[in-house]
């Protein structure tokens, strides 16, 4: 049963991946951009426009029938050909190879911090339900969820860089990624990206803990004479963790991708979001589309991981 469930999830993921690529193809077709327009814009006057257009359109296959274009598009995506970046004059796939690691570093550090702090906050507040500490933490969680992260980033810059002068350095791609200077420059971005996550995970863990605290098996555990700390850590937390893992996995993609995009923009970290936004303003269509597609594929990947993780964490599904 286990294996067929996995197969089903994989098949589902493949269908969605196909749907995502198809959707991007049609978005591109109904959009106002033709590859020829892009190229002509960089070309300037003095050329035979219609000839050049025809040449480019044949080069890109835009003059072919729609189904053939569609097939070629999917085919090239699958072969790692994500198009040509006009603004940087290199294949988009090379551009991605240069920039992805910076996004990964920012997201990785923020997520680790957010998971540790968020889960601790959730356990702390659940164990002190309805006390003053809980109320204060709940208030700050709401604030953390509600604060726009781009504004938070700006306020951190205003207070700690402009007014206090503590953070004057910016992320420097000339230095190693994990150099002290770059890690120091990542402190404010990581706080910016992690704040909302800490608050969100904290609240989610709290409600999941509270839900499980009322379960009969927790009373059974207490009746066995287990110390309260073991009851909370083992019986409540391990069960509360199940939905938390799913939420964190699903969150990884959507909110983090959006958040990282903006955080990179504010702090000038040369990740995929920064690259995409630069492409938006230099009207480099393929790059913008590629980053959106990557976002979708990463989401899909984490959804799949969440599904699989769940089956391994919950014996009820594992042994169905």
């Amino acid at each position: 049963m286990d294996r067929s469930y996995l197969a089903k999830r994989l098949l589902h993921a493949l269908i969605i991946a196909w749907g995502v690529m198809t959707a991007s193809f049609f978005l591109m077709r109904i959009g106002p951009h033709s590859p020829a327009d892009k190229y002509l814009a960089t070309l300037g006057a003095g050329h035979n426009v219609s000839q050049v257009t025809a040449a480019i359109e044949s080069r890109y296959g835009v003059d072919r029938p729609l189904y053939e274009q569609y097939f070629n598009y999917i085919n090239s995506l699958l072969h790692g050909d994500w198009g040509w970046s006009f603004s940087t004059s290199m294949p988009v796939s090379d551009l991605i190879k240069i920039h992805w690691a910076y996004s990964f570093q920012l997201i990785f550090l923020s997520s680790i911090l957010a998971i540790i702090l968020g889960i601790s906050l959730g356990i702390f507040t659940a164990a002190r339900k309805n006390t003053k500490a809980d109320h204060i933490a709940t208030f700050f969680s709401f604030a953390g969820i509600s604060i726009p992260n781009f504004w938070l980033g700006m306020m951190l810059i205003l207070i700690f860089s402009v007014k206090l002068g503590w953070f004057k350095t910016y992320y420097d791609t000339g230095l190693p990624m994990f150099s002290l200077s770059n890690l120091y420059a990542l402190i404010l971005p990581v706080i910016t990206l992690a704040t909302g996550m800490v608050a969100g995970y904290g609240r989610f863990v709290r409600s999941s803990m509270l839900e499980n605290m009322n379960k009969d098996f927790v009373r059974t555990a207490r009746a066995k004479g287990l110390p309260e700390s073991v009851v909370l850590r083992k019986h409540v937390f391990r069960n509360a963790l199940l939905p938390v893992v799913t939420i964190i996995m699903l969150d990884m993609s959507g909110i983090i991708f959006g958040g990282a995009y903006i955080t990179e923009f504010i702090f000038g970290i040369p990740g995929l979001g920064w690259m995409s936004l630069k492409a938006v303003f230099s009207d480099d269509y393929s790059v913008v589309m590629a980053v959106t597609l990557i976002g979708a594929f990463v989401t899909l990947f984490f959804n799949l991981v969440a599904d699989i993780a769940y089956t391994y964490l919950d014996p009820r599904i594992r042994y169905e």
Binding site: D216, F217, R219, T220, A223, N239, D314, P315, R316
Partner: peptide
């Protein structure tokens, strides 16, 4: 020691 009413929920499922 105590034995509870509903064995379906008295044991921790995981």
């Amino acid at each position: 020691a105590m034995v509870f009413q509903d064995p379906h929920s008295a044991l921790n499922p995981i």
